[in-house]
Design a protein around this nucleic acid. Structure first.
Lengths: 169, 169
DNA sequence: CTTGGAAAGTCAACAAGGCTGACATAAAAT
DNA sequence: ATTTTATGTCAGCCTTGTTGACTTTCCAAG
């Protein structure tokens, strides 16, 4: 409704990709694709009585071994109480190890145990398999565009985190 | 770990975009981007004491006015009990109207009221604004690739739904 | 016309995973 | 010595998902 669907005041360029119709397709594509994106890990997690929250924690601990609770908290964007519940079960179950900081003994540095790394592998193998199939089907140029749009869609703070992670660990 | 990060047995082509490293970047991009994708509507919904589930229902009712409860159920992929709770509040609050089917009186056809349409507009305006900014920043070629990869990532059943929705309502 | 089954709605109970607020402890920093 | 920081924990709440059982309505096939 906002501004019709033609090239509303197009400045000479082809701005047809910015019509409400095109944007709507993108929105719905995000919705349905995200379901696919999480479907395989969700199925695996069911077998272990874990949920998506555990997956996210495991992913980022694997990604940056030894990161502190605070760092994990800010990547995940949840409260410490919420994370703690998840983290506690992972530690109790022997998937994650919490080591007291050497320099600063208040900090806890998180690491995956072999058992945790095994689950991480199982989860990310499944997720990568789907991503690989999608990438292969779409081709390298599409993949570049895919990443560009996603990066532009992030909140600045999230983009900062993502880029720091993307380049150098 | 699965297969190294080089061009493992690359068949002559440039398959560098399929390395585990590239796939991992895509996975994390999806994670962070989805947060941005839902952030604006979530903020708006807070003002009304509604949640993401209400947004999804409103979106698809607006998209296909008169669709039945069953049809909505299968698009959303939740149980009728779960949807019913959300739908009931939307009807009670006068955002959604449930009309008994003319042909088949068991079916309920869902429509947005003017009030419902107003909220839908507020939500989708915000979501489109972010998507528009991202599209504009990335450019038309990137957008095409974005959609291709997302479509390839969906479960076949979801893709069917998405494509049916994408072309002709 | 009767009946089987589909569409819809509802009740109850439960779980995951968000949230807030309050409080405890240890260690670093001032 | 005091304050601040990092972490953990308890209690309670909310949303949104689940399963299972049951009812009502009503189309359609026999």
């Amino acid at each position: 409704m906002a501004e019709g669907s033609g090239a509303s005041g197009a400045s000479g360029e082809s701005l047809l990709f910015l019509t409400d119709e095109q944007l709507r397709k993108g929105i719905e594509a995000m919705f349905f694709a995200y379901r696919g994106f999480t479907a395989d890990p969700d199925r695996i997690l069911d077998n272990y009585a874990y949920g998506r929250a555990h997956h996210r924690a495991i992913h980022f601990i694997n990604r940056q071994p030894g990161l502190t609770v605070n760092a994990l908290l800010s990547v995940l964007g949840v409260t410490k109480q919420s994370l703690n519940r998840v983290l506690r079960t992972l530690i109790e179950d022997g998937l994650v190890e919490s080591r007291v900081g050497r320099k600063d003994k208040r900090e806890r540095h998180l690491h995956l145990t072999e058992k945790g790394a095994a689950l991480e592998r199982e989860l990310s193998d499944a997720q990568r398999a789907r991503m690989r199939a999608a990438y292969r089907a779409a081709g390298p140029a599409a993949v570049a565009g895919f990443r560009q749009v996603l990066e532009a869609m992030m909140d600045p703070e999230m983009r900062r985190q993502y880029l720091a992670l993307r380049d150098g660990a």
